[in-house]
Computed example of a mutant assay.
Amino acid sequence: MEEKMNNDYKITFIRGATTASGNSVNEIEDAVVELIDELISRNNLTKRNLLSITFTATKDLDACFPASIARRCNGLDSVAFLDCQQMFVSNDVNFCIRIMAQVLLHSNNPVNHPYLRGASKLRPDRC
């Protein structure tokens, strides 16, 4: 059954972050898949509700592009993705992947920003 987008939905931005356990394709993939899965499940999203996701990664992550992994997750090949390097700040969280997702969210649905693994210390109020 096709769900109609109507006035019950609003464009919302959801932030989140996680950390990879290291700088390998497999370690980055594990972190990105978990983060996307949590973004979708915590916010009751469908792939039609995801408009775009911007990823940033700290400079110690260069084995692959997080967006290329997300494109293969959950049938999200039609979502607009962008990868950027996170601004370097000393004492930042290592191996950190941040997201800002633009979504269509049902107006009654509260926003849940997923902060996982080592990134949970960035926003302890959002874990």
Rank of each mutant, 00 (worst) to 15 (best):
D8C: 10
E29K: 12
D125Y: 06
V111F: 02
S90F: 09
N6R: 02
M1Q: 08
D92L: 05
F13A: 15
L35K: 05
R123C: 12
T56V: 15
A101N: 05
F81Y: 11
D60Q: 01
T18M: 03
H106F: 14
N44P: 09
S68E: 08
M5C: 08
D30Y: 00
V93Q: 10
H106L: 14
P110W: 10
N23I: 07
E27N: 11
E3Y: 09
Q102C: 11
C73I: 12
S107I: 15
I69G: 04
A70C: 03
S41Y: 07
D60Y: 01
I69W: 02
D83R: 10
M100E: 12
N112F: 01
D125S: 11
A17Y: 02
N112W: 02
I28E: 11
V25E: 13
R42N: 10
E29Q: 12
R71S: 09
L76H: 03
C73M: 04
K121T: 04
Q85Y: 13
R48H: 05
L51A: 06
M5Q: 05
N94R: 06
A17Q: 03
L122H: 01
E38T: 11
I99H: 02
S120F: 00
M100L: 13
A20T: 09
N43V: 07
V111D: 04
K59S: 14
K121W: 00
N108L: 15
A101W: 05
C64I: 14
F88N: 13
Q102I: 12
R126Q: 07
N6L: 07
T56W: 13
C84E: 14
F65G: 12
C127R: 08
G118T: 00
P124A: 00
R72Y: 04
A17E: 01
R71P: 06
T12L: 06
A67H: 05
L61C: 01
D125E: 13
H106Q: 14
S107F: 14
E2C: 08
R126H: 04
R72G: 06
R71G: 07
C127K: 10
R126I: 12
N26Y: 03
S24T: 11
S120I: 08
E34G: 01
F13H: 11
D125N: 09
T58W: 04
Q86S: 08
P124C: 00
F88W: 14
D37G: 05
E27W: 03
I14T: 02
T18V: 07
D92Y: 01
M1I: 13
D37K: 08
I53H: 02
V79L: 11
N44M: 15
I28F: 05
N91S: 01
T18S: 00
A119C: 06
P124I: 00
E38L: 10
S120W: 01
L39Q: 02
S41G: 08
M100W: 04
S41W: 04
S52W: 06
Q102F: 04
D92A: 07
N7F: 13
I97A: 06
R123T: 10
A63P: 08
D37L: 08
V93W: 04
S41I: 12
R42A: 11
F65H: 12
T12C: 10
A63H: 09
I53T: 07
P110I: 15
A119F: 02
H113M: 03
S90R: 09
D37I: 12
L50R: 00
K4Q: 12
C127N: 07
F13L: 12
H106I: 15
S24L: 02
K59Q: 15
